[in-house]
Structure formats: structure tokens, C-alpha cells
């Protein structure tokens, strides 16, 4: 097991290097740079200033020199300076990561909290009213675009009913660190979180339901029943253990989506996070930030996949890798 994790971690290094190279080159291929668009509407800017800023940030160097400089610092943990935000990228990201992770974790937890029970119910009592209702919800959630649904939630629960605030991550009037502060944070989290979670349940419910239906008919389940194992135990001990496998494997991939997956939610609910920063950095040609975020989500993908493999081998002895 340790050997396996070690091997996977070692493979990660060239993977990330390659990723960074591709991203860097692609980013540089975009027409214009951080200075081009930002300066054009500004009557106070002069061409000389633009040139001196390009010089200052090394934007005039050939791409391999820029890449060399960047990677040299990156391995030391310095991701460079953001051109538009005028602060170190690491500093900038730190502020946003917390929000994105909080939001994504909330979404993830709620998703599982909803999806697993629903999947089990639908799988166990197939073709009942409950099952049909769940399946309908499932198709509905699959078909609804997130931004439409999020707006609907916002409209209903914030503007009509007034239960939750319409945007932001916390009320600025409340003193940081107090109990009320955390309550306010949670209140701001519910609406974007629920909007995301209610639509994210599709995969899990569908997988779980199908797998349970499938497993129900397997010989070992029949055997268990024939032995006189009570129905409840048949499900918890025999069927679920098998059916949860693909869900557990999925967890790793879900982590992947945590980083940049909430762009729409962040935009609609004015929730400052990585997703928005990512879009902003691309339109503004803020290369250092773009590269840094791609690197982070790239790392998350690689780690997520590894996590999936580890979970799988931990719970399923059959596919343990030696």
C-alpha cells in the first residue's frame, strides 16, 4: 500500500511539470497580455508606462525564459505576482481558497446526505411511489442548468421569502469571531450550498439505485435470504457494502470538482472564490494567476484520482494492488 502511494506520488511530479508547461505555453499564446486591455480605456496611461510595466514583469522575454523564471520560483512556493491584483499570487489565492473550500465541502456533504438515503430508498423499494418520485427528481435535477436553478432559489428564498441573504459570504456588520459571525457565515452558505447540492445528487442516486437493484438479484443475496438473515440486515451487511463501492470511488473525483466547480454559484451569490478569480484572470490575461489556479486544480485531479484508488483498494480486497 505504502509503495503504491509512493509510486503514485512520484508519478505526479512529471505530470505536474508537463501540465505547467502546457498551461504556460497556452496562456502565452492568448493574444494580448495583462497590460493591453487594462490600459486602453485609461486616458492617463501612456505607452511608456505600458512598456515599463511589461519590462518590470518580464512580459517582453521569450516564453521559455519566463517559464524558467516562473518554475524556478514556483518550486520554492512563490507563484509570482498578480499583475492585476498587485499582490503575490499565493497571498491572493489564500484569501479565496478558504471560501471555495467551505462552499464546496458544504455542497459535497449535503449532496451525499441527500443522495445516499434517496438512492437506497429508490433501490430497495423499486417501482414504488417513493422510487418514482426520486427518479423524477433525479431527471429533473439532471436536466436543470445550475444558473437557472440557483437564480430560482435566490429569488424564492431570498427575495420573496426573505429567509436568507442574497449574496456575500458574511454580514460585514457582525464582529469577526463571535458566535453570531459563524451563524451569519452559515446563513450565507445555505442558499448557494443547497443550490449546488440539490443538482449534484444525480450521479450518486442513479449509481446507487442501479447497483442495489443489480446486487439484489445476485446469488449471494439469495443465499443470505435463504439462510434466514433478516431483510434489514441483508441490505446493510450484504447489498450496501457492495453497492457503495462505486460511490466511494467517485468521492475522489468529487474532490476534483471542489476547486473550480462553483463558478456559477460564486457569480450569482457574489461569493468571492477561486472560480470567479479564474475567469477574471483569463479575461484579464493575468497569466500568473491563471497558471496557479490550473496547477491547483490539476493537482487536485491527480490527488483525487489517487484518493479514489486508495479508497477502492481499502474497502475492496479484490482489487488491492500489490
Amino acid at each position: 500500500m505504502i509503495k503504491f502511494i509512493l509510486r503514485r506520488t512520484l508519478i505526479m511530479i512529471p505530470q505536474l511539470l508537463l501540465l505547467s508547461l502546457i498551461i504556460f505555453v497556452l496562456a502565452k499564446q492568448m493574444p494580448g497580455d495583462a497590460v493591453t486591455g487594462a490600459f486602453m480605456g485609461n486616458p492617463n496611461a501612456t505607452p511608456e508606462q505600458m512598456e515599463s510595466i511589461r519590462e518590470h514583469y518580464g512580459l517582453n522575454d521569450p516564453w521559455y525564459v519566463q517559464y524558467g523564471n516562473w518554475i524556478g520560483k514556483a518550486v520554492k512556493g512563490d507563484l509570482g505576482q498578480s499583475y492585476t491584483h498587485k499582490q503575490p499570487v499565493t497571498h491572493l489565492l489564500a484569501g479565496r481558497v478558504a471560501n471555495t473550500v467551505t462552499l464546496s465541502l458544504f455542497v459535497l456533504i449535503v449532496t451525499y446526505a441527500i443522495a445516499i438515503p434517496l438512492g437506497i430508498i429508490a433501490g430497495r423499494w423499486t417501482d414504488t411511489w417513493a422510487d418514482k418520485l426520486i427518479v423524477t427528481y433525479n431527471y429533473f435535477s439532471f436536466a436543470t442548468p445550475l444558473f437557472v436553478f440557483a437564480l430560482l432559489m435566490l429569488f424564492l428564498f431570498s427575495f420573496v421569502l426573505g429567509w436568507f441573504p442574497s449574496g456575500g459570504s458574511v454580514d460585514v456588520r457582525i464582529e469577526t469571531g463571535t458566535w453570531a459571525y459563524y451563524v451569519s457565515k452559515l446563513k450565507h452558505l445555505v442558499l448557494p450550498g443547497m443550490s449546488g447540492a440539490l443538482l449534484a445528487t444525480f450521479g450518486t442516486i442513479q449509481y446507487l439505485r442501479n447497483d442495489i437493484i443489480d446486487t439484489k438479484l445476485k446469488d449471494f443475496v439469495k443465499t443470505a435470504r435463504a439462510k434466514g438473515v433478516p431483510e434489514g440486515k441483508v441490505y446493510t451487511r450484504h447489498i450496501l457494502r457492495n453497492s457503495m463501492l462505486p460511490i466511494a470511488a467517485f468521492l475522489g473525483y468529487e474532490v476534483t470538482g471542489l476547486i473550480a466547480g462553483s463558478i456559477f454559484l460564486e457569480m450569482i451569490f457574489s461569493y468571492p472564490g477561486l472560480g470567479q478569480l479564474f475567469i477574471q484572470s483569463i479575461t484579464g490575461r493575468d497569466f500568473t494567476v491563471t497558471t496557479a489556479i490550473v496547477m491547483i486544480s490539476g493537482t487536485a485531479v491527480i490527488v483525487g484520482t489517487m484518493l479514489s484508488d486508495i479508497i477502492l483498494s481499502a474497502i475492496d480486497p479484490r482489487i488491492r494492488i500489490e
Binding site: 435566490l154 429569488f155 449574496g167
Partner: peptide
């Protein structure tokens, strides 16, 4: 006595103004 200034998305600004937020 005080002013709160906050980012409001262009999608919700009209509603926010209507309900007095």
C-alpha cells in the same frame, strides 16, 4: 452613522434595490 458597501451581481441588483436591500 454608517455605510455598508457590498458587491451585488448584475443579475440581482434590480431585485435588491426593489426590496430595499
Amino acid at each position: 452613522k454608517s455605510i455598508v458597501q457590498k458587491v451585488v451581481s448584475s443579475a440581482t441588483i434590480v431585485e435588491s434595490m426593489k426590496n430595499g436591500d
